[in-house]
Structure formats: C-alpha cells, structure tokens
C-alpha cells in the first residue's frame, strides 16, 4: 500500500499504543487486514500483540462507533479510531444517550475517502492483482499490465458524496485535516425521482425493494438504529410481518428511513452493507432534504448540542399539508 498510509499507520499505532499500554484505555477499536488487501475488518485491541495488527489504509470503511454500545458494557474506557462519518455517528449515539462521553477516547482520523473494490475492478477491466497509491491517483496492477486512475473515480459511493471528511468530535487529531468538501451533489438522485409520477416512483421502489432479503444489515450497521428493541421485533403489536410481500417491504423501509428523520448522519453505511444494493440513501436523503427545506438547515451528527429538528418546534412552523 501507499507509503504515506504506512507512515500514518505507524504514527497511529504509536499514539494509541501509549494510551492502551499505559492503561488510559482498556480497549482500542481499530481496523486490521482481512483475507484480502481490499478488506479491513474491526480490530479489538487489548495488548501489544493486537496493536501489531492495527492498520490504516484505503479500505478502513467499517464504522467502529457502533461497537461502543457493546464494548462499554465490558470496559471502563474505550478508545476508538474515528473518521469523519464515524465521528458523526458517535455524536448521534451521544445525543441518543447511548454512550457516555467521558468513557470514550476519540482518535480523529481525517479521511481521504475509502476505495471501492467493485469500482477498482471495473476500472481494471478484470483480474485485478493489487493497487498502489500516490498523490491522488491509484495504479491498478492486473495480469496484463498497469493502469492509472484518479482516486476520485474509484472512491466508495458514500465517500464520493461525503461532506465532512474530518472528524467533528475528537480528543486527539492524529492526521492533518482534509477540509470540508464543497459542492457535493447529494440530492441529485432524490430530485430525479421527484420528477417522476407517483406510479412511476412506486414502481421504482417496488422493484428495488423486491430484492430485500430482510437481513436487517442496514439497521444493524446504522448509528441511528440503536433502539434496544426495534419495531421489527416487537410482538405485540406485530408491526412488521415476516412475509416477503411488497407491502411488508415498504413497511420496513419507510419506517426505518422515517425513524432517521433529522437523525440520519448521511454516512451511507446502510447502503454499503446492503448485499443486494438497494439505494437506501435516497430514502434517507429525501428526509434530510425536506426537513432542511421546511425547518431550516440541520446536519445531524455535526453538532451534538444542536436540537434535532423533530425534537423541537416553532409555533409558526410551515407544514407540508394541502391546507396551510
């Protein structure tokens, strides 16, 4: 991998190592390499040997903040590596009173965006063996030769559309900031859908949602889905039937998205986790877009002190009903 990220990983290991081995934190949540160079998986580091495995490269996409919900039950103080989206996820959990701020040490990692294996493969046009990175470009090595592409072309979708690559909350910033990204078009696909007729939109969603396996990966990775009991599992009343009927698909997906109104931090983990590529972000973003338009700009997760729009009101609020 790129020399830069190796150096960065070294620096991260050194700093978090001091805290972990010095006893300031009992556990460090980071990443380690999986079976493949394009996969990094969560690392639960407790000692020096674990720290050896710690990695920081262009594939550390998994959000670690959510693991705090479980790990804080076992450990007094937990350290977490947070990218921009992970930090907003942490704020989400903080606002929902799911974590205690003073029991978490956040190591901020301004994030250049993570790379998408599928897009890399597509660009390579087959048999991708490895990649190397330098200065905003990625060199793809295949069985037949090499090809260079812009880094922006092979970013994960969620990273290409990211506005806040820098952590908005941290105890220590470990790398130099990337800066807020301007001019990101997040709502284009939502606007395109709004142009359709109701029947066309319904057909679109019916098609997309028909693939849903009801594996609930979108819910399980989501920082706003931290309820101890989800409506899906409630038995009485039983809101969510288990049949794969179109109506049941809509029930789950509309309610999941709706529960994120003013709370969704737009990290895109749901869409990344979906094994059948349902465009879940379009539902989330529709709500972000409308709530901003109706009740003023609000970016969930950016400021843990600001009131989420559905937890407050103004007497002269506008409404979206046909009677004004």
């Amino acid at each position: 991998m790129a020399e830069k990220s190796l150096k960065e990983a070294e620096k991260i290991r050194e700093i978090v190592g001091q805290d972990l081995l010095g006893g300031r934190i009992g556990l460090l949540l980071g990443w380690e390499k999986g079976h493949y160079w394009w996969q990094s998986r969560p690392l639960f580091a407790k000692n020096e040997a674990d720290l050896e495995k710690l990695t920081w490269d262009s594939f550390c996409v998994i959000n670690l903040s959510r693991y705090l919900l479980e790990e804080l039950k076992e450990h007094g103080k937990v350290g977490v590596l947070v990218k921009g989206c992970d930090a907003r996820a942490f704020n989400r959990l903080l606002q929902d009173n799911m974590v205690a701020r003073d029991r978490v040490v956040l190591y901020g990692l301004p994030c250049p965006g993570m790379l998408d294996y599928g897009r890399l493969n597509e660009e390579a046009g087959g048999a991708l063996i490895s990649i190397s990175e330098s200065n905003g470009s990625v060199t793809l090595k295949t069985g037949t030769g090499e090809k260079s592409v812009e880094r922006d072309q092979v970013l994960m979708k969620k990273c290409a559309e990211c506005v806040y690559p820098d952590p908005v909350v941290y105890d220590q910033l470990l790398l130099s900031p990337q800066g807020k990204k301007e001019g990101v078009e997040r709502f284009k696909s939502v606007e395109d859908l709004e142009e359709l007729t109701p029947d066309e939109r319904f057909a679109y969603w019916e098609g997309e949602l028909s693939r849903c396996l009801r594996c609930y990966a979108c819910r399980q990775v989501c920082p706003f889905c931290s309820c101890r009991e989800c409506f899906v599992e409630q038995d009485n009343p039983r809101w969510q039937g288990r049949a794969y009927q179109p109506g049941e698909n809509f029930m789950f997906h509309l309610v999941r998205a709706y529960h994120g109104t003013g709370r969704c931090i737009d990290c895109g983990e749901c869409e990344r986790a979906c094994p059948v590529d349902i465009p879940l972000q379009e539902l989330n973003r529709k709500l972000i877009k409308d709530i901003n338009q109706l009740y003023g700009d609000y970016e969930a997760g950016v400021d843990a002190e600001a009131d989420p729009p559905l937890l407050t009101y103004r007497p002269d609020d506008p409404a979206a009903f046909s009677e004004k």
Binding site: P42, C215, Y216, A217
Partner: peptide, 15 residues
C-alpha cells in the same frame, strides 16, 4: 474474540 465484530444481521445466512 471471534464474535466481537458480528453485527447480528442475517446477511451470511441468507446468502
């Protein structure tokens, strides 16, 4: 250690 990263979703079983 093995279970730590599991999110409790059903992807693996359904695929």
């Amino acid at each position: 250690n093995l279970y730590k990263s599991c999110l409790s979703c059903g992807v693996c079983t359904y695929v």
